[in-house]
Amino acid sequence: MEQATFAAGCFWGVENTFRQVKGVTSTTAGYTGGHFPNPCYLDVCARITGHAEAVRVDYDPALISYEKLLKVFWNCHDPTQFNRQGPDRGEQYRSVIFYHSPEQEQMARASKQKLQIADNYDKDIVTEIKPAGEFYLAEEYHQQYIEKKRRKS
């Protein structure tokens, strides 16, 4: 198993998207990329942590490649929106690829460059590419949030 970590707006939708991908064995909503230890949702929303809402993706590289996960990432949000996605605004909603190895960094940078050159967007891609750091689990009610909501309906 390998890990990938992505931030692309509210982690509820991002996590749900990756959970549907064959080869993904688990997903976890959390916070990363900031400077504040052990943040809670209210800390992150207060914009005092520097963290992004992110999703850690555990996957089987025999079933899905990191390159394919990058395609899912690019397609599940608008990478030209700075510190926001749709109505959600703030640094916690920024677009970031957190790489876990030099190979992931290289693939992430190449995919971003390829997407920018493809000229699919009217604006520049603002997605950051940063090394993965400490990942703090989001509260239990955020985990698989969309699935939980569907079950209650």
Rank of each mutant, 00 (worst) to 15 (best):
F36D: 02
K112A: 09
M107W: 14
I146V: 11
K112Q: 13
S111N: 05
G133H: 10
L63P: 06
Y66N: 03
K149W: 09
T27Q: 02
N16S: 09
F6N: 01
F18H: 02
F82H: 11
F73S: 00
D88K: 03
N75W: 13
R56F: 07
V21N: 02
E128C: 06
R19D: 12
K148V: 08
L115Q: 08
A4C: 09
E15M: 08
L69K: 01
V24A: 08
G50K: 03
A52C: 15
A8S: 10
V55F: 06
T17G: 03
Y66R: 06
A54P: 00
T32S: 13
N75E: 15
P39C: 14
Q104E: 14
E53I: 02
K130Y: 07
W74D: 01
V126G: 03
E91P: 07
K112H: 11
C45V: 12
I48N: 11
D119F: 11
D60S: 12
E2M: 09
R84Y: 08
E139Y: 08
V57Q: 00
T5D: 05
V44Y: 03
K114Q: 15
L63E: 15
D78S: 04
S26L: 09
Y99N: 02
G9T: 06
H142C: 08
G30M: 10
N83E: 15
E134D: 10
Y136E: 02
D122E: 12
I97S: 00
I146M: 10
G23I: 01
F18K: 00
Q106E: 15
G50Q: 03
E15Q: 15
E53P: 00
T49V: 05
N83H: 15
E2R: 10
F82Q: 07
E91Q: 13
T28F: 12
I97T: 04
G50E: 09
S26Y: 13
L63G: 10
N120E: 05
P131M: 07
E15H: 05
L137M: 11
E147Q: 14
G33C: 05
W74V: 00
Q3P: 01
H77I: 04
Q144D: 11
I129E: 02
Y59D: 03
Y59M: 07
Q104L: 04
Q143T: 04
Y141P: 04
N75Y: 13
G133P: 04
K123W: 08
G9H: 00
K22Y: 14
P131K: 08
P79F: 05
T17S: 03
V21Y: 02
V96E: 01
S101E: 12
A132L: 03
T5E: 06
E134V: 12
L69W: 01
R84V: 04
V14A: 03
K130D: 11
Q92H: 14
G9R: 01
L42F: 13
E103D: 15
C45G: 07
G133I: 06
H51T: 05
L70I: 09
T80E: 04
D124K: 04
E147H: 12
I129M: 03
R19N: 12
A4V: 10
E103W: 12
P87Q: 11
H100L: 08
L137V: 04
D43C: 13
L69R: 00
H51R: 09
